[in-house]
Design a binder for these strands. Sequence first.
DNA 1: TTGTAGGCGTTATCAC
DNA 2: GTGATAACGCCTACAA
Lengths: 352, 352
Amino acid sequence: MNKEDSPTGRTPTLADVARVAGVSTATVSRFLNSPDRVIEETRNRVRAAVSELGYAPNFNARALAAKRTNTIGAIIPTMENAIFARGLQAFQEELGHNGITLLVASSSYQMNVEEEQIRTMVSRGADALLLIGYRRDPEIYEFLRRRGVPVVTTWVFDPDAGIPTVGFDNFQAMKALADKVISLGHRRIATIMATTEGNDRASERLKGIVAAMADAGLPETDLSIIETTYGIDEGGAALEQLLALPTRPSVVMCGNDVLAVGVIARAKEMGLNVPEDLSVTGFDDIEIAKISSPPLTTVHVPHRRMGKEAARMLINLVGSNTRRENIQIETSLQMRGSLAGCVNRPSVADGS
Amino acid sequence: MNKEDSPTGRTPTLADVARVAGVSTATVSRFLNSPDRVIEETRNRVRAAVSELGYAPNFNARALAAKRTNTIGAIIPTMENAIFARGLQAFQEELGHNGITLLVASSSYQMNVEEEQIRTMVSRGADALLLIGYRRDPEIYEFLRRRGVPVVTTWVFDPDAGIPTVGFDNFQAMKALADKVISLGHRRIATIMATTEGNDRASERLKGIVAAMADAGLPETDLSIIETTYGIDEGGAALEQLLALPTRPSVVMCGNDVLAVGVIARAKEMGLNVPEDLSVTGFDDIEIAKISSPPLTTVHVPHRRMGKEAARMLINLVGSNTRRENIQIETSLQMRGSLAGCVNRPSVADGS
DNA sequence: TTGTAGGCGTTATCAC
DNA sequence: GTGATAACGCCTACAA
């Protein structure tokens, strides 16, 4: 039982430190928040008292009194796959450099869960919020506006969104890939997407494919669409549905890399060669895209830069130094082995 | 400008609700926390006032007054790969069923960062903590004990750890796999592990391999060890180091699936056939293990069950219904294509 | 530079 | 059942 064993039997408070140091609570508070406003001699006494008591400030009390938490919240659709990991990592690093803590929650792609979490974050005092995509109930934006909580949305870019966006144009990005696919001779195109309802990224990507087909004069009926949740196994299951259709696609364009990798794996299990029998594309260019075999053709997204820029904008907004703006991140096509030209063989392979 | 536009110009408080409903703040508080202790008639008035004002309770004030947050914190080594994702998901679900919120932070496998985050979580009022592994500075456990914050560690099982563990025996699990590898004829074994310093899971897994070799009478010099950070590319880089050594291993046993998949990918790039030229094993059995080609032989860990059990124990500890205990989760070998028997060919393949 | 004192929004202990 | 009212731990004018 050393001297550090809680002398009072409870966790030390500011007042305890003040008493031990022989100063007022105000001085201790200053020592903690702006040490330069405390004279050296006093500083030492307080510092000693702090470490003697093992004092740690009570965050909730601080937030209550200061109306500021130095905390920014991020709500992402999922933590189960690595789609958002890298961007969030960069986001967190940038916040860390500015002494800001990140709080993360995941909504499982459910809008009502997300709303709940937005309210929770706000009631916990988050100074600002990072959200994925911009399409959500206007009421929630109204709520945030009234509470004065700045928001930035990412993974999308849209100057007309009404709120700051830091991201890329999902429509154009996917259209560019679809253009490429079509130029390689593919006509029977299938796509596996996240449920597009309430998911602007997915629905815009889908529109991108449709637009590319329209440009090429392909009938919309040549496009088979399956909506599913994101996951490797889900991708595989979707592929099976696709192959049960009367006309077998020559290419499957997936809404993200996770689905695509699942498709490739299942295709191989089913005895199909990728890309000879079936081409596959993804979206995101996360790590598994490279290690898939064949490696995955996909849309490269500069996740880290996106996360960093979002953090910077949010930090500015909290300091209210800036008006809102939008930052566009450029994506690029990442060609790899999973996409090949289409020789337009009949939909049911024969032995000839 | 409708009636909901903040009437007072600031966010509504309990007192505002009380005023509008014509009751005391105590009653509103009761309405919020134990509605059954308020008579129906009053309840309705309060309910109306709440929704009229768009009132939402201030979490920090609540925590300050109640000394309880209904929040449990989890600190994991990384969010960058999916190792902890599934377990954490199950953990969160179980907490959710009990009205508890989960706060997640990641430490990037750095002990000092983790300590910092533990202190942050506590000062934010987390009612309890979930940590990965048990090996850390005793001072931090002392800190938690003094603050009365229950802790459960997971991904390890050790009744002697001094704190509750919900997990598996890393030593035995890896030893079982190594036994199998050796029984297949492998002698020149290499291993790629996370830095074992401060990482009990990694160091125990390594010991498991060493023990298996000892049991088989293999000299310890037959084991090449490379320590690296977890990541796909890191696995690939480690493989290159390994292949530069004078005696080429016939099998690479990796500390986790992420490394192993990286090894397989790089091996193929280098023109090696897996498992003919080189066998590879992992640990965890996360999703990529299945989609790797060849699919990965690994140690299966029941992540979801582990997460769920940890949540239950933590919930009990917060209610202080229980004394601490330990729960062992059984792992199993998951044999797949990346591991084959060793024909003990010379370390440098020739054309014969 | 430092101290005093009021307030932040809830909860909880009492009486009534 | 309901209402005062004192905590909870910290911040921040304002004074000294």
